[in-house]
Nucleic acid binder design. Structure first.
Lengths: 176, 176
DNA sequence: AGCTTATGTCAGCCTTGTTGACTTTCCAAG
DNA sequence: CTTGGAAAGTCAACAAGGCTGACATAAGCT
């Protein structure tokens, strides 16, 4: 029983590697998997607490974040980034517009499109949320140091789905 | 108002640092935040696809993972790790026991406790799920290299809630 | 004997995801 | 100019998986 597990642990290192790839053992990978799990919990904990006061959820936070990141983005663009259905996103956007946090303006060039902007109230909530998140991220970065941060981002980028990666990359590459 | 944002961006580097803390700019932090968002999506994508075939969700995956990690764990211990209510966990465990993936045995020392074990079928599903996740993690690790992996784990550990961190640490420290 | 703990369960609610069907608006190609 | 299709919005229904509150049972502890 227990020995099966240990057998797995011992057999995963294919003979292709000598011993320089100890960081690729199944045990190391499992540690990484759990690190992602626990860290993501911490990562979302602060915004979640704040959102409770506004009767909003993570879905609202995501919308607010990406509208703030690229003001004037269209609904379709947001759909591609968030990877949810338009019905799901629309429900969130509707409440945000109703509550006066998001401004939805009909496109000038293509009037079918709606361009999304944060209102002043929206900007305020975005700042409250992202500042809480930045506080934690800043503490983690500071404690870990620049080299660790570089490695952190490198691994995370490798973990992204290639089709979704450009949403992350595009942020600083092309201002467009 | 808008100037506050710019003021923030400019002022976030406290004078305590000269210029060695460029990795702590708000822009760098935002990149880190989005990296977490997109990477977590990739991180869960493969298991999610597999779970659809079994009509299970992420909640089942989490339970299976941690029961596999520490066989014989109690319900209360699992509750502490997962951070959900017992009703929520119980709903998941019930289906897993009914479906013959998890074995729930009354404790010998304390008969109030239930000790949880994966059945053979449970082990098989766990392996299918974790192998998919390991494939992605392994690829990311391999592409990023050992130093990056070290930094990755360091930052993630810093990001965890201190009260939850021991669930991660305890994994390899004490076999108990 | 009585309090506490561990677990399970029922009922109901919320958020956030899904699908399917339908409408309106409007660009663009025939 | 008309029509096809894309973009967006809406309604309805449903499911997963969180939550709370209340309650039951069994078992350990004092």
């Amino acid at each position: 029983m227990k020995r099966d597990v240990m057998a797995d642990r011992g057999a995963q290192n294919t003979p292709t590697s000598g011993e320089s790839l100890l960081f690729l053992t199944d045990e190391q990978l499992r540690r990484g998997i759990e690190a992602m799990f626990f860290a993501y919990r911490g990562f979302t904990a602060d915004p979640d607490r704040i959102l409770e006061n506004y009767a909003y959820g993570r879905a609202h936070h995501r919308a607010i974040h990406f509208i703030n990141r690229s003001p004037g983005t269209t609904v379709n663009n947001l759909l591609a980034i968030l990877g949810v259905t338009k019905q799901s996103l629309n429900r969130v956007l509707r409440t945000l517009v109703q509550d006066g946090l998001v401004d939805s303006r009909v496109g000038t060039r293509d009037k079918r499109e709606r361009h999304l902007y944060l209102t002043e109230a929206g900007v305020n909530l975005e700042r409250e949320l992202s500042e809480a998140q930045r506080v934690r991220m800043r503490a983690a970065y500071r404690a870990a140091g620049p080299e660790a941060v570089s490695g952190f981002r490198t691994v995370l980028e490798q973990m992204m789905d290639p089709e979704l990666k450009h949403h992350y990359i595009a942020t600083t590459e092309c201002t467009k």
